[in-house]
Design a protein around this nucleic acid. Structure first.
Lengths: 123, 123
DNA sequence: CCCATTAATCGTATAAATACGATCATGAGT
DNA sequence: ACTCATGATCGTATTTATACGATTAATGGG
């Protein structure tokens, strides 16, 4: 074992007496699996991008803003913003509301609450 | 607006009277920005992968298990598991402890708690 | 009925993530 | 010292994500 930790990460490792062989027993069960787990992972993935996190932040402080407001606020093209909004919608973070020729976006409160409760349960 | 919503997502949209022009006022401030935000996004991204989520789940129920236990539990090669563990370590989700020639992994409780509190603050 | 505004989608280029086999370094036991 | 067990890293192939310009479609106003 040598390339195991390249200096920067070495700090996180400490040496302990060797444990007995065998996988440690399961100490608990987890309240998530299957489709719920897939959905949770999808929500994590959607927010695991700086632009999309910024979109969510903006929607949090400016609920009901339209796509164009986000395009003005962000350093990327309209097509890309639209694509990110699609990812956030599919993950359940946001919902759009047609307002004339525009679309106003808000957080999807029910799903946000679900995410929070899952995080509290699991971790 | 027409390709805007391809049938499956149409359900999430409802029609409301058009709002007054202008960006909605900021309704609140957010308790995250800069490096903290980057770190939070990194944690989201790390868990936004089904294999890594499964690793975290396994560590939650089998704290102190070694890499080989995870390799046995997962349907992917050892090199790939090692790579995923590196991502989880860099994001702060897990920490490794050298035990002889092996490395025992556990959740990084402090960072997990930080993540929880950030989720509670922000959303 | 045209025209401007708005935003979703298409096609495509580039970057990043994911996976694997092979190799290498370390620790432990012989 | 030699060998085995362990797991991190390397090189690389493939897939997926990200970004953009261009196009398309729909609404609302003149």
């Amino acid at each position: 074992m040598s390339q195991r930790e390249p200096a920067a990460e070495q700090a996180r490792l400490s040496v302990l007496p060797q444990r007995a062989s065998g996988i440690p027993e399961a100490c608990c069960t987890l309240a998530i699996e299957g489709r719920e787990q897939t959905r949770l992972v999808q929500m994590f993935k959607a927010l695991g991008n700086p632009i999309r996190f910024e979109i969510l932040k903006f929607l949090l402080t400016h609920p009901g803003c339209i796509t164009g407001d986000l395009v003005n606020h962000l350093p990327i093209a309209q097509a890309t913003v639209s694509q990110h909004l699609k990812v956030l919608k599919q993950a359940g973070w946001v919902a759009g509301t047609i307002q004339g020729p525009a679309v106003a976006y808000c957080l999807d409160d029910a799903n946000v609450a679900w995410f929070r409760s899952r995080v509290e349960d699991v971790f």
